[in-house]
Structures are given as C-alpha cells and as structure tokens.
Design a protein around this nucleic acid. Structure first.
Length: 495
RNA sequence: UCCUCCUUAGCUCAGUUGGUUAGAGCACCUGACUGUUAAUCAGGGGGUCCUAGGUUCAAGUCCUAGAGGGGGAGCCA
C-alpha cells in the first residue's frame, strides 16, 4: 500500500470525482461528501486539531480543511508543508471559525506530492515581485499570479468572443516571415545554417540560398500585412498571436516576445476604426469586471497597499476598480496631432520648462511625458490622437489630402501610454508606391501586398492592441514581466 | 543603449566614523497550546556580506572593473 496514503475512516467511494474548490465555496451545502485535490498554502497544527488551507487554482479563495489528530495522522501531517499536494475526502461542515462559511472535515488524506520545506521557496508572506520573477515556475502558486493568469485567460476568451460575435474571422498569420515591411524594429533571425561554418558566396557574404527557406527569414513583428490580405476578401478579420522584437528595450512596458491582437476591416475608415477600438476596449474592461470580480478585488487591495508606500503626490487618484469603471463610463477624447501639439505648447509644464523635451514645433513625435500629460493631467481620460505627420508613421498609412499627415490613430491610456496603434490603410496603388519609395522599401519584396491594391482595392483600416499592455491596465500591475507567464526580455530566457 | 539606485541567512531587511565572534522578523527544526485564518509562546540550527582586484595595521563598510536586478528615458505595442 502507498505509504503516503492514510485513511481516517476509509470512506472514499471508488470512482468518486474531484470537486473544484470554486464550486464547493459557491454551491456546497453542509454535510456533503466531497473529494478535493490541491496544494497546501499553510498548515496550522495544535495538539488535537490541524487546519490546512488548500488551493487548487479554480479561484482565489482557499478551502479550509479541518483534521482531527490521531497518532497515525500526526505522522502523515509531519510530511505536509506549504506547497505539498493533497487529496482529501471529507464532509462539508458549517465553519465555527471566522473567514469562511463552509470547511471540509477530513475523513481520508492522501499525500500526492511532498514539498521539502528546506527547499520550497514560497512562504505564507509577501514576496517581492522581483524574487517571484526568478521563480516563475512556482509563482503561479501565489495569490497575485493566480489572479493575474485567471484574468489573462478571461481576456483571451473575451477577445475571441467579442470578434466572433461581430462576425470577424480569426486568421493565423505566419510566425516565420521573410518580410520586414513594417520596420517595426530589430528582428530575430530564423536559420538552420551552421553558425560555426557559414556558407559564403563568392563576394564573401553569407549564402542564404543554402538556408532552410532558401532566403533570409525572421520571426514576425506583426501579422498586419497578412491580415490585410485576408480582410480584402473576408471583410473583417483579426489575428491574435505572438510577435517578436529584438530591440534592446529595458523597460517595464516592453517584451521581446509579446501577444498582439490585430483586427483588419475592409470598408472601414479611420472613424469606424476608432469606434471599434473604443468599443472593444470597453467590452474587455466590462468583461473583466463582470467575470473576474474576486481576482480584481484582490488586485485592487494589493495595489492600494502598494500605493500607501508611495509619497502622496505619486499616488493614484483612483483605485483599480474605479479606474476600470471610469473607462467604461466615459467616451475617449479624440483630437488630432495638430491639436495635441497646440495644447502641449500652451501647457504650463511646457512654458515652465518642466518637460525634458520641450514642445516647440509641429512635426516631432510625442514623448512619453507629453502623452502622460494629455491623458493624466489635461483630459484625465483615455485619448485618441489622429492625423500624425507622415514622417513619423509607417508607409502603409493613408495619406490625407493635405499631403503632410496620415490617417493614423493612437489610443493612449493612463499609466501605460500607447495601448493601441492603428490607421486607415493606403488603398491607392500609386500613392502606396510613392510612400514606399520615400522610405526605401523595394517593390519586388512586397509584390503580393501591392497586388491587393491592383485587384479590387477598397478603403480599409485596422489596429494593433498589445495584449500585455491591456493586461497591465486591467490588473493594475506596473511591470509587463508580471502579466505574462514567462517573460522574454534582453538577457533573460530562463524557463 | 543611456541615466540612476540596489546586491548582507531560504525570504524581507538593519548594520553608526573602516575596529572584537555580522543582527532582527518571517521560514525551518524541537517543545507548549481544544478552533486556527500570514495562529501564538519558548528554545535551536542556519552566512562565499554578488564576483574579481586594490587601498589599509584592519573592509559588509572606501576605490576600480565586471555580473545581476529595480526605477526612469529612448524605441514601440
């Protein structure tokens, strides 16, 4: 017999199914026979009774297990520590203690997996997020990361539901690509060539014709161009997949590998595009509030504690939940780049030279501090800025009649800055060729993209939403490494 | 990549002007306790003071270089 198996009264029914803790806490009445499995958070033991809080990830809350101590059970319990996995058969009883309505009176306990307390790093106390990042394989077992990754799942589902309900089709765009069309940043090379013995051409360059694809290939930086191809037949499509940037960005808002949602819609102009972006963001925030209440309230309290550590002037004006509700209940402010520059030039911090980069002329890109001023100080709500100078935007964006600006739109959120970047696309073949020449993109590399402008070209628009940026906003976390299970950043690909 | 701060027990941190054997709380182990909620109380074990070099009679503490991490910036989503 399994040594770790110990029966108090031996009543497990053969074939009995496990009940999730979320279901027990929500639906169970007293005096029900139940089988649970999960991981020990804490154990408190005295002479005659032992309390174990058990968590199985189905919800934030733990189930309290109550065990009457006998000599045999005492021996088993000496092997039970934080992190151990248990299977428990018992009967639900009304809890005489504080903190929970029902608890499980154990009849039979099986130790599924021990956790050596000398080595197990998680304790029933606050750990720093930096420390937990170093044990990303175990941080799922904390309240904070349990909540975050349950919400992350809910947001993934809500995104697919939102688009599905609107008649969009999900398109899987390639992860390995030969084009660097967007110029969105440094790319990761994909190759099967022997790096210690590279084949060379006669003029001494690397001979990529011998590589796996017979040409240079990279990991994608965006699925947008491929999504456009699909949109010009299926009308409304979206991608939701991983994207990669080899930029040496060391910030709390950048990852080398992140997930992006890129809807692309035929017959949409820039205003339709903005309407969709705003509708989607509000839908997702509302979905989180409606479906992730317990986890959000935990993160709300967590953030409140965090804010107390900060000096008064750096604290948030709103709590996490208030901020989410505020986004749902207020329309986003829509202004042009030109209006934004005017507001900034006349702003107090600009006149008092409080900006690191002062705003003195039309045409320069907005810095983080300027975006934050507009969103957090001037309008105090999400802002959409449109019609940027063409020089600071990508080649595929539709040129306005003024010849100077393009129909781009950026959605700016408090705390995190740019959460969405999008545009109406240039559907005119000649204008698109002209812009490509200006920025130095070769026609022959983009022949397939250009053909859509030759065969039944229509006005169309789209945008990109950084999934982890959305997660930052929803969870109130401040570092992007804490809203993706296994972050990829410069010098870090552990796990 | 730039600026800036940090690195002391498993974790969170203290460590005075450079001066004897480097401390606390939590965790762990032992004991006490009939209901705990990060239980409580008493006792115990636990250290490459990030690494390398230097200054000094003496370095956790000062200097130089490197590694790792945080915050901010750039680039962007």
């Amino acid at each position: 017999m399994d040594k770790s198996f110990l029966s108090l009264q031996g009543k497990t029914k053969i074939g009995m199914k496990r009940t999730k803790i979320a279901d027990i806490l929500q639906h169970s009445k007293v005096n029900e026979e139940i089988l649970v499995m999960g991981w020990v958070r804490t154990k408190r033991i005295s002479k005659n009774v032992c309390f174990i809080t058990l968590n199985d990830g189905s919800c934030l809350a733990n189930l309290q297990i109550v065990i009457d101590i006998t000599p045999e059970i005492d021996e088993l319990l000496s092997h039970v520590h934080s992190g151990a996995a248990l299977k428990i058969f018992g009967v639900t009883v009304e809890s005489p203690g504080q903190g929970q309505a029902v608890e499980l009176h154990a009849k039979e306990i099986t130790l599924l997996g021990e956790a050596n307390p000398e080595e197990y790093p998680l304790q029933p106390k606050k750990h720093s997020l930096e420390f937990l990042r170093e044990i990303a394989h175990l941080r799922f077992r904390t309240n904070t990361f349990g909540a975050i990754f349950r919400i992350r799942h809910a947001m993934t589902y809500a995104i697919h539901k939102f688009f599905n309900d609107k008649g969009f089709y999900n398109i899987h765009t390639p992860i390995i690509t030969a084009s660097d069309c967007e110029g969105a940043g440094e790319m990761f090379r994909v190759t099967t060539l022997d790096l210690y013995n590279l084949p060379k051409t006669e003029d001494g360059k690397i001979d990529f014709t011998q590589d796996f694809f017979g040409r240079e290939t990279n990991l994608t930086v965006s699925g947008q161009l491929e999504a456009e191809l699909a949109a010009l037949a299926l009308s409304q499509v979206y991608t939701f997949g991983p994207t990669f940037r080899a930029e040496n960005s060391n910030t709390a808002r950048h990852l080398a590998e992140f997930w992006m949602i890129e809807p692309e819609m035929a017959f949409y102009d820039i205003n339709d595009d903005m309407d969709l972006a705003e509708e989607m963001l509000k839908y997702l925030v509302k979905y989180a509030l409606d479906n992730c209440r317990e986890d959000l309230e935990f993160l709300h309290k967590r953030r409140e504690e965090e804010q107390k550590q900060k000096p008064q002037n750096e604290r948030d004006e709103m709590g996490l939940i208030q901020r989410l509700e505020f986004v749902i209940n207020n329309n986003f402010e829509r202004i042009t780049y030109t209006q934004a520059i005017e507001i900034l030039m006349n702003s107090k911090p600009n006149k008092n030279k409080q900006f690191v980069y002062s705003v003195d002329k039309w045409g320069t890109d907005l810095q983080s501090e300027h975006e934050r001023y507009l969103v957090e100080k001037h309008f105090k709500k999400p802002v959409i800025i449109t019609d940027y100078p063409k020089e600071i935007k990508a080649f595929y964006m539709k040129l306005n009649d003024d010849g100077k600006t393009v129909r781009a739109m950026d959605v700016l959120f408090p705390q995190i800055g740019e959460i969405i970047g999008g545009s109406q696309r240039e559907e005119n073949y000649d204008k698109l060729i002209g812009r490509m020449k200006e920025v130095g993109i070769h026609e022959k590399d983009m022949w397939w993209y250009l053909e859509t402008r030759k065969f039944g070209s229509v006005p169309h628009s789209g945008f990109g939403l950084g999934f982890e940026r959305l997660m930052l906003f929803i969870t109130g976390m401040s570092n992007i490494r804490d809203v993706i299970p296994f972050p990829r950043t410069p010098k870090n690909a552990e796990f």
